[in-house]
Design a protein around this nucleic acid. Structure first.
Lengths: 403, 403
DNA sequence: CTCATTTAATTTAACCCTTAAAAAATTACA
DNA sequence: TGTAATTTTTTAAGGGTTAAATTAAATGAG
């Protein structure tokens, strides 16, 4: 595991091909050996050999012949469809927000087998308590399957490999260490990941973004950013997530941000910022209670009616986002952006301001085609992205073996 | 070539190991088979086999025994030192600036065998003219060796794979296409690269930055940025270089930048910006003549004497740089920064302002240890980085074979 | 001057993996 | 029932690696 040898040994070739074949099943679902041979560009003989070991190991299984989906040609020996064995192993994917934990169990085929949500304010909880809650939630599902891996999306910064939360606005110092406790108590792998990164991961499976270079911007309590560059999730040097929210939009005389600095993009574009401005409150105070989805929906409604504080709040959010994007595009080049989260519902209203701001601050704006889109519920994407991470981890384990 | 198969075939294993062994020679210089066996973690037998083919192909050669550097132990059969064959192939590495072309030829060992520089203003030249000049400069060296690859650093944007210049402040539209002409006329590979990226590449071989996460900031005519993340040169989505110079430091009422926008970091931190401010000229005009190294040296001298326009110009440059770094750190995490170029001579004077600006705009400043350093002549680093790129390309070719 | 000792490099034999080709299996259809 | 069609398995050949045995080359003691 720790030895990071590259492939230069026949044994590694074998494992590499194992993964290759598993990945084809992951990608295409039910397939016969012959089809896999074509897809994976391996000879029929190799596919037979590897399939045999995969069957023995319980990683794939033979599908019962479905009347409909027969072999393409009618003559000859019929193909035997194989697929990933759903019972092989299980993933728990989910997300932690400031006042709730939602978890879903997925089988190895990637189907959701159970889901559970609990309202808990995590702010003052210790790591072992959180781990305990998660475990009892899973217990409460009454499912015999034990998860082999937990993948949990959280707002904040995690380290590069997903083993540790470095900072999160929704957790105490002790709470941030829940992954350790969970891993010890469950004896399963635990990966913590930035929520926006998981959203991007989820979107990356979408045909529209399959090309693989795009950004997911999560507009809710903060302004999250998940980047995909050339089909690979982008990771910072030490930590998981790139930040859009704390780019300095206005100088130090700007509005107060949750991070205690002034003028951040978040201080203009997050839900509390929009709310604060729409309600014409002091830009140097933070609201005491969390802003709800309804609050934001109401403001959007109001803004649609015409000019006024609500409309102006959304304009300013657009300008801040546009500025943030301009800066990011300057560093990475421009690419499509998908907006997710409740703030994203205002995308139609913001779009012109975003573009204008981009135009003002990004030199190459006109040379690049920047496409915007908004997508559905953020939590679903976080969960979905997390499940993908979990399944890919299982695939790796299945291919390269345990220890 | 075009087929991008991964390693999953014994033949690929062979090639992989060939590269592995070549890389050890590249890294460590003269080594015996036994030593290579240890370094590359391959068996003695494999090293013998591969070495034989490498010798046959003229890629490595036997070193004449130097009296001094004998085998570590005195007993036993003495080791035969091998090394890369300097005559195997040659690289031309160099850089194009607005008024000069400098080229050096390197042998396969990485030793510089010749160098030539010519004053030419490239601004209005066509691509084929530039190619012609480069070729005749090489011709003029009177060296029998023909280069297999040209690697040239240029200010501006190149595409991801180094085949094309997308934009450069020093070249006309036709001039930007010189790589095509050069490649056709010389029948050699031609790679064009961003100058700052090459500087970073050069620095990456420095022990101090060998860890592999740092930024090179080139302060001269513009503000270039070369990034190394985790030992890998960072590339944008479509283009080569990340940009620090055109981050929006002040709004649209800021000073005029060469890119025709207002308020860019470059408009405060580049040599013309410093000069403009030190001379108390209109911040909305661009100087007609290029600012020289002497101009900048004089301003730095003046600033050292005490407060005044020169000192203030440098302060403002520091603030702009600090702002740019803060934004970059927000996206990538913080890491060491090396300043290169004539503006970097003012680092001592700027450092406090950079840090203060960072502190103001980067949330995690105090949690990260941001180290600054300045390095020697930019051109040398560009050339050096380019030669490294060229040699690595040759290594790849040597390992994986031509077609 | 010879020969045991020591270290380096090469050769050998065994093992693993892949592939192409041959063989076997399984079904449709005449 | 037999032939054609198609999928899957088996076989044999070929290539790569490694551990171990062998050969090569130099030192130094008797």
């Amino acid at each position: 595991m720790s030895k990071t040898k590259e492939v230069y040994l026949s044994d590694d070739v074998r494992k590499q091909n194992r993964l290759r074949i598993i990945s084809q099943f992951r990608l295409h679902g039910k397939k016969s050996r012959t089809e896999i041979s074509t897809l994976a560009d391996l000879s029929a003989g190799t596919v037979t050999n590897v399939s045999t070991t995969l069957l023995d190991d319980g990683i794939i299984r033979v599908c019962e012949p479905e009347g409909a989906k027969q072999s393409s040609a009618s003559h000859g020996r019929p193909r035997v469809q194989l697929e990933l064995n759903p019972e092989y192993k299980f993933v728990v994917a989910g997300s932690l927000t400031f006042n709730s934990i939602s978890l879903s169990m997925f089988d190895y085929l990637g189907d959701k087998v159970a889901t559970v949500q609990e309202k808990v304010v995590l702010e003052n909880m210790a790591g072992n308590e959180i781990a305990q809650i998660i475990l009892s939630m899973i217990d409460g599902l009454g499912i015999s399957a034990t998860p082999s891996i937990f993948v949990l999306g959280v707002q904040g910064l995690t380290n590069n490999n997903g083993s540790e939360i470095l900072w999160s606005p929704i957790l105490s110092d002790s709470g941030m260490k829940f992954a350790d406790h969970l891993s010890k108590q469950s004896k399963a792998e635990v990966i913590v990941a930035n929520d926006s990164a998981m959203i991007a991961r989820s979107l990356s499976k979408d045909k529209a973004y399959a090309e693989g270079t795009f950004a997911a911007v999560l507009m809710s309590y903060g302004i999250g950013l998940g980047l995909y560059i050339d089909g690979q999730p982008f990771k910072g040097a030490k930590s998981s997530a790139s930040e859009l929210g704390h780019i300095s939009f206005k100088g130090s005389d700007g509005a107060l941000c949750r991070c205690k600095k002034h003028g951040c993009v978040e201080a203009y574009a997050s839900d509390y910022a929009i709310w604060r401005r729409a309600k014409q409150l002091d830009p140097n105070t933070l609201p005491e209670n969390p802003v709800t989805s309804e609050d934001i929906a109401n403001i959007i409604e109001e803004a649609k009616q015409g000019e006024g504080p609500a409309r102006e709040a959304i304009r300013e959010a657009g300008r801040a986002i546009g500025f943030g994007l301009a800066i990011m595009f300057g560093l990475f080049d421009a690419f499509p952006v998908v907006f997710v989260g409740r703030g994203a519902q205002a995308l139609d209203l913001m779009q012109d301001d975003i573009k204008q701001s981009l135009d003002e601050h990004f030199r190459f704006h006109k040379q690049f085609d920047v496409a915007f889109a908004k997508s559905s519920d953020a939590l679903i994407h976080v969960e979905n992205g997390s499940s993908i991470v979990g399944l890919e981890w299982l695939d790796q384990q299945a291919a390269f073996g345990k220890s």
